[in-house]
Write a protein that binds this DNA or RNA. Structure first.
Length: 700
DNA sequence: GAGCACTGC
């Protein structure tokens, strides 16, 4: 602890904090800011008047850092030093230093907007710019004015954007604390490689043959490329002449790897053996691998982005930012001087890379965040003018307002409704919290709780039916429930009900290839949701509460509730084929994702109307997780859509300039004219595919 | 008939 760089700055830090309500601290990796700042303030007496809170973007960080601090102070974790993350509050009345995820702090400020229990709030790792951190930054700016006399706010950030944060907080002081990284030598490629897979392979082998011992960390974009590179590396290493160089172990590392495979990177290699870790950006911040001396940076990352104009998500491979590239390089200098090989020229780094990663708030759907802010009842706040460090686009905020209006969370003037208030209390996307409230009215709350919980964890819950996986499987896969033809939300419900009937047996999950960790998470979420709903629940929340007519039920009430909750995510089938047209503000041509269990009727046609959980644009625009709904439930929503006036929603449109004066009329979906916004290119691709299909059919 | 970076309440 004594040799941490930050300790030498204690006096300066304390002085600055005494004299200023907000201080930005730039501390690089290894400076000790996460563990030491809270202890300094504690020593100085700040814990006498309240708790010192330290937020973290990730749960594991909140737990591990608090454990360290408790150890250093010689107290039991959960007493003077504790942590709070979702599902787990390890604090007590005696707690003076509290580590928590930024999401938990946002929840707390919902019930206590002044956050009076805290004397100091430290937003740690603010440079990561998580959606939650960005909202907290805006809230802190307001809060320090209201609690000027008794609240201190500290923000820690990385080198590149510290000044921007300082400026945001009316030019507050900015202190820089050196890190404890060893120097990392950077090597650039002369040109951008035609294949960064081949280029990383070559670079990795060069290191293996020429450089002294030390592990190699290779940053790739995704599972696919990682698996390919691992195979190629294994192949090449095997063909090397025996005794010509040291042994090698090659390890993949990405999020969809089962936990037991992930932890393999934490066990040290046998002597005289070099490890190659081929990873996604999970190794950038979330997981720290010891022993890395060499880093190979492809310069790319996969990023999910939301397009508010279309309501569609896409997962794109994009260039990393300078901050990200430096973070990756830094992974080589944790234990001794290292080397970083960038597979792109310095010109690309200097001229093409953005300084910082586009913050999440500018890449996400904001319905949930806007509802959250509305529910805080901030006086005199026009949501379009909320003071964000990097404001999201007006388009994105208006998209959120429209969504919220359609699901009754706000009224036509943009004011939060009582339904909206209840929704904000639920840790769910607005569409799902709206579904829960409606289901409660229809007497199918328990089913809706299950669906909402399942969708909260959905990614990687179900087995993916790729051919490579089938080969690995020891026995043929057992049949999962099929949603009775109604679609994916119903299937998810049925799966959980089966698991419940099997007493939440882990082996049952394994038999059906369901991700165990994911299913346990669902169970926890469901429990949490049902506790929150208990206050207003009109029926039992028990999983088996709605199973009385099992076998011949139509899930009518549940589907109706989903229709109300997903009012802004509806689609209507084309008259003569299985393509759909979304019924939102801008109509899109979309298809049911092939993984869906929605079943066609005897004529081979899908339901006339469906709700979808999300639109994802991959090779084509797809609806993921769809559920059949009925026309008579959809019609009232369309009426509401026609009455929508964005200007009123966003607070009368003060200072809000929009072309034309006809207000919402120009945005009405053209129901009869079949107007769609599909790019020419995509349209012709679809056309070409259709012709190929017809040609094949004709041959037969 | 196709594919999924990473978090979090």
């Amino acid at each position: 602890m004594a040799n941490l760089p930050i300790v030498q700055f204690e006096k300066k830090i304390i002085e600055t904090v005494e004299q200023n309500p907000v201080v930005v601290i730039i501390g690089e990796t290894g400076s000790g800011k996460s563990t030491q700042l809270s202890q300094m303030l504690h020593r100085e007496g700040y814990t006498d008047s309240g708790i010192v809170a330290v937020t973290q973007p990730r749960r594991v960080a909140a737990v591990s850092v608090s454990r360290r601090v408790a150890q250093e102070l010689g107290v039991r974790l959960g007493e003077e030093v504790g942590y709070a993350i979702r599902f787990e509050d390890r604090t007590s009345e005696r707690t003076q230093i509290k580590y928590l995820t930024d999401g938990v702090l946002l929840r707390e400020s919902l019930s206590n907007p002044e956050l009076n229990q805290y004397s100091v709030i430290i937003l740690d790792e603010a440079h990561e710019r998580s959606l939650n951190t960005d909202i907290l930054l805006g809230l802190m700016k307001r809060l320090v004015k209201r609690r000027a006399s008794n609240l201190k706010v500290l923000i820690t950030s990385a080198t590149l954007d510290g000044e921007k944060v300082s400026k945001f907080f009316s030019d507050c002081p900015l202190l820089t604390v050196p890190g404890k990284l060893f120097p990392v030598e950077i090597f650039y490629s002369k040109e951008r490689p035609t294949s960064y897979l081949e280029s990383s392979l070559k670079t990795a082998l060069d290191i293996h043959l020429r450089e002294p011992e030390g592990d190699v960390l290779i940053f790739m974009t995704g599972q696919d490329d990682i698996e390919k590179l691992v195979l190629k590396l294994e192949d090449k290493v095997r063909s090397l002449e025996e005794g010509s160089c040291m042994d090698a172990i090659i390890l993949p590392l990405h999020g969809s790897l089962p936990p037991e495979m992930q932890v393999r990177v934490f066990s040290p290699p046998p002597p005289n053996c070099r490890r190659f870790i081929v990873a996604t950006n999970i190794a950038e911040t979330s997981l720290t691998v010891d022993g890395v001396v060499y880093v190979i940076d492809s310069g790319y990352v996969k990023q999910r982005q939301y397009n508010p104009a279309t309501g569609m998500y896409s997962l794109d491979v994009v260039q990393v930012s300078k901050v990200q590239a430096n973070q990756r390089a830094g992974r080589a200098g944790r234990t001794r001087p290292g080397k970083c090989y960038r597979l792109y020229p310095s010109r690309v780094y200097n001229d093409e890379f953005l300084d910082v990663t586009v913050p999440e708030i500018q890449r996400s759907s904001l319905a949930g965040s806007v509802l959250y802010l509305k529910s805080l009842d901030l006086p005199d706040i026009d949501i379009l003018k909320f003071d964000f460090l990097d404001p999201p686009s007006t388009e994105s905020l208006e998209d959120a307002l429209k969504q919220l209006y359609l699901i009754d969370a706000i009224d036509e003037n943009g004011s939060i409704t009582s339904v909206g208030r209840t929704m904000a209390e639920l840790p769910l996307e607005p569409s799902l919290s709206r579904t829960l409230i409606e289901a409660n009215e229809y007497g199918c709350l328990s089913q809706a709780l299950t669906v909402a919980a399942m969708l909260s964890a959905e990614t990687n819950l179900l087995p993916n039916q790729s051919k490579s996986n089938e080969k690995k499987r020891k026995h043929p896969p057992l049949d999962l429930p099929d949603g009775s033809g109604f679609g994916d939300q119903i299937q998810l419900l049925q799966i959980f009900e089966c698991w419940d009937e099997n007493d939440y047996d882990i082996d049952w999950c394994k038999d059906y290839d369901l991700q165990v960790r994911g299913m346990l998470f669902v169970k926890e979420v469901r429990k949490q949701l049902s506790q929150i709903m208990q206050k207003i629940a009109k029926g039992s929340s028990d999983v088996r509460a709605n199973q009385s007519r099992k076998g011949h039920q139509s899930y009518r009430n549940l589907r109706k509730a989903l229709c109300i909750g997903y009012a802004s995510q509806l689609a209507e089938r084309m008259r003569h084929h299985n393509g759909y047209r979304t019924l939102g503000f801008k109509s899109q041509l979309v298809q049911v994702h092939p993984s869906s269990v929605l079943q066609p009727d005897d004529d081979g046609l899908y339901a006339n109307y469906v709700v979808y959980h999300e639109l994802i644009s991959t090779s084509r625009p797809y609806m993921r997780n769809v559920c059949a709904v009925e026309r008579q439930w959809v019609m009232p929503i369309l009426d509401k859509l026609e009455k929508l006036n964005v200007r009123k929603l966003s607070g009368g449109g003060l200072g809000h300039v929009e072309e034309g004066t006809e207000g919402s009329m120009s945005e009405l979906p053209k129901r009869e004219a079949e107007v769609v916004t599909v790019s020419q290119e995509r349209e012709s691709k679809i056309q070409a595919a259709r012709e190929r299909f017809l040609a094949r059919k004709a041959k037969k």
